[in-house]
């Protein structure tokens, strides 16, 4: 079992040596010598000439942490609409507490995203490969749907109180089936028996799950 501090180190090594150009990181640059020694003992890293490298075992573990971190970012960013600054620090905590099952659920919910909100790749695992035929995200904002696409509303972003109130008033609520009729110059969608036109800002707040 790798500690949180250990996972942090593995993440750093992954970013610099797997995604980056470096072959290793200098031991003193990483600091936390005790943690690194423990990682070396559990065969996640090797240390030679004060240079630290990932082992294949460490590589696998690092990949998982990275994946959880970036999935968490996606979740916070897309679904919970957390700002970029808060997202980063929250994702750092999230990555340590998400179990594999939860991770898989999040990945499926988000439609197996391939990149984090910063545009870096999210390492795919089995669930992603199996789910690959789903080209679109399972949950997405109405503004990202194309003409003819639709599903059920799963949630509405509640940060903008006024917009929320309007949507509630018109009966745009979780559980209502929607289908996009037009996306430009404004969004027009069918919700039950009613057609509703909204601007992009409001369409951004409505999240839909494909049926």
């Amino acid at each position: 079992m790798v500690t949180n501090a250990g996972q942090e180190i593995l993440e750093k090594l992954w970013i610099d040596t797997v995604e980056g150009e470096d072959e290793f990181i200098e031991l003193k640059k990483l600091g936390r010598e005790g943690t690194i020694n423990r990682l070396a003992k559990s065969e996640h890293v090797v240390i030679s000439d004060n240079r630290v490298k990932l082992t294949p075992k460490g590589n696998r573990e690092a990949k998982k942490v990275i994946r959880r971190h970036r999935l968490a970012e996606r979740l916070l960013h897309d679904v919970l609409d957390v700002g970029v600054d808060d997202m980063e620090s929250a994702a750092c905590k999230f990555e340590h507490i998400i179990s594999e099952d939860v991770e898989e659920s999040i990945c499926t919910l988000l439609g197996h995203p391939r990149e984090c909100p910063h545009g870096k790749p999210i390492p795919p695992i089995r669930c992603c490969k199996e789910g690959k035929e789903i080209a679109e995200k399972i949950v997405t904002s109405l503004s990202k749907l194309r003409k003819g696409q639709g599903g059920k509303i799963v949630y509405i972003l509640t940060k903008n109180h006024k917009n929320l109130q309007k949507l509630l008033a018109m009966g745009i609520l979780p559980g209502v089936p929607v289908e996009v009729i037009q996306t430009y110059p404004s969004y027009v969608f069918q919700a039950g028996q009613t057609q509703i036109a909204v601007d992009k800002e409001i369409a951004d707040d409505i999240f839909v799950r494909f049926v």
Binding site: K162, N163, I196, A197, D199, E201, I202
Partner: peptide
């Protein structure tokens, strides 16, 4: 003042 937003039933 507040930016306008658009929502309307057709």
């Amino acid at each position: 003042g507040e930016k306008p937003s658009f929502y309307m039933e057709l």
